[in-house]
Nucleic acid binder design. Structure first.
Lengths: 214, 214, 214, 214
DNA sequence: CATGAATGAGAATTCATTCAT
DNA sequence: AATGAATGAATTCTCATTCAT
């Protein structure tokens, strides 16, 4: 029983969260272990102890993110629902995930292209998994095109679209001055789904209809 | 006679290119000035001399990128063409730009969220410009929605979509094993335009029609 | 068991002494941290670790010096003794301090005019303290003049006089070829006191008297 | 005729003045040649050209200062005047010199203890000259004591006393908030003379007399 | 488990000087 | 006489990691 009560999380978890927050804010390479340790309220040496180095924190973050994503795909694909609904559900769930664990997701996504030599292998494996999930998803909802060239365009496009909000980060709030509340993320999830399925024209049409019927 | 012949570019330009290449590959923070200087074949001190520091290289890259983007918007918006064509032209031109100056664009886009404190101001200004161009473009083609919340979703979404190929970087070639030639980028530009305007359903429909008529 | 025996001082103290010695010899700005670390027999990084930078060493030296000076003033002023005796005691104690911690005092005094921008604030505060002590001292011994203009002349003059030996540094030994032993510093302390109170004429008179009575 | 008119001084002179100003403000070692060149409005390379290096500027400053001091001693000692008057005249002239060429004097005095290895020889020679002048002066005015030990105390003490105002630099104005005008320097010269000849008690007596007779 | 001291490599930058023009 | 580019060494400081306690 290392703690009087479990109000405060375990050191390992605190390191992970501190790391994620800092990586998300400043980028992996720009963050120092001391900074992480300080924010986590642990001794620097503990980072090597728990994660055997700074890179270990990033690895853990990415792995956890992919476990979550895998969970979402598995759950939705297990149900046999209409293509359009399935895609919307996936988008909604992914957005939900990002809402709940924004910084974890942001780190996992944005730090993936980072080419630390030791990460190449690890990330290739992780990427293969992700793409495979999407492929399964698109197949199921009959939107899969059996053409490598198209897939190499559509898959990154879809991912970028869904994650666009998080790729742009704190800019969005600063530039458009919107409040990022529950309603906003519902709107986001819906709008992205529409854009992904029917594009800008579809979105405009929908908005006009709403305007008329109002 | 400073150079045998002018085949080799000026030091300043070489630094810029070396910097862009390395930033694109490993991320700004993970690259050292020594590495850049070595690749550019200049003395390390020249980086401070020409760009007054590592950050100066990134600033220059971003500024040049925005000059190019501004050029594209200005050119297309000057013509008074049909909305849909205008958007397709812009997408095509942007993709062309990225094809020609891939690493410069990639750096400019991906390093923008990087939160070096000294960059905040500079990047905010640059972002404002970019967004303003897009707003003008969408207004012209009647796809502009006068609602901050929608814009805060649509604008990042559109940018992410257009640049998705470059955001994913070398992954794409590795995973799907496609050849990135002239044809590929034509296909990319067309597909992204369709996705942006009509979404996945629009794209599928188009593909099916092509398939039928064949 | 960190040390065989405790003959050798703690690293922090060794850095401080090495720094003081080098600052006194070559001046703050002309000394490098590597040089200090080498002389102290520690790793360069330890300087940042203990003093958070080169400037930290100088700050510590100056602060310690002022603690000592404060101690002297407090001690002497606490006794209620005749003005002339009080002043002589203060001079004697200050000279004693300088004799014991020559290089520390020299650095503290000579590097104070050094205008590192970050030091301005710190040094202004330290100077205010010093001047305040002297003012108290002069007040007590009835030699205080309540005129800003006179004080702005007398205070620096007194300080310069008392510290003159140390301001001139190794020159003195080189030029006059005197031995800086216990006797010398007693003579110094007495002579400076006389000069301060009665000037050159007073000093000459005293010397002549001594000569006559001999 | 390199200049339209001679309003602007020659480059060499401008470098010297810029150097003196910066050395006085920040200390020799803390000043860079680029800084000097910029302030002087010349190209950096010119410093090596005219003075064969940074050190050459300091050498020139010190030499010029000693020429001036030599001039003062020679002039006053040539007249056969009463000891006390002679000393007062010397002090007055030295203070005048410092008033006219404050920064040059300050640099010459404060940077002398600086122990750049290459300077040792040069400065020893310069110091010997200075001390010789003072010795002549004191001999003339019958205040010279033929005892090395006393001289090694009195000479530095006298110099320190006379220059105290300039050794303390900008502090004085900041701390006592006095206006450094013609009157102030007259008062300074007189007060220092009194202090040097008759000490604090002499000064106090004089002030009281002035107060009474008023 | 946890700590704080210690390390050595590497970071970016600035330095005074030189050289060809 | 003057320039601006270029150099290589030296600057301070920070890095992730290790180790004895």
């Amino acid at each position: 029983m290392p703690k009087e009560d479990t109000l405060e999380k375990e050191p390992k978890e605190r390191i992970l969260e501190a790391g994620a927050l800092l990586f998300a804010t400043k980028g992996y390479a720009a963050v120092g272990v001391r900074e992480i340790a300080e924010l986590a309220g642990v001794n620097v040496a503990m980072i090597s102890y728990y994660f055997s180095g700074k890179a270990g924190i990033l690895k853990e973050i990415i792995l956890r993110y992919f476990d979550e994503v895998k969970g979402i795909y598995d759950k939705v694909l297990a149900q046999n629902i209409e293509p359009e609904i399935a895609l919307k559900t996936i988008v909604k769930e992914l957005v939900n995930l990002m809402k709940k664990k924004t910084i974890f997701c942001k780190v996992a996504i944005t730090e993936m292209p980072f080419n630390l030599p030791e990460f190449m292998e690890f990330k290739a494996e992780v990427a293969r998994r992700h793409i495979d999930y999407i492929k399964q998803g698109l197949q199921l909802i009959k939107l899969f095109v059996d053409d490598n060239r198209y897939n190499s365009i559509i898959t990154p496009a879809a991912i970028s679209l869904i994650f666009s909000h998080f790729l742009f980060g704190p800019f969005i709030q600063k530039v458009w001055n919107v409040e990022l509340d529950e309603n906003y993320y519902n709107l986001y999830s819906e709008t992205i789904s529409t854009l992904l399925l029917e594009g800008l024209t579809g979105l405009i049409k929908k908005l006009n209809n709403k305007g008329e019927t109002k």
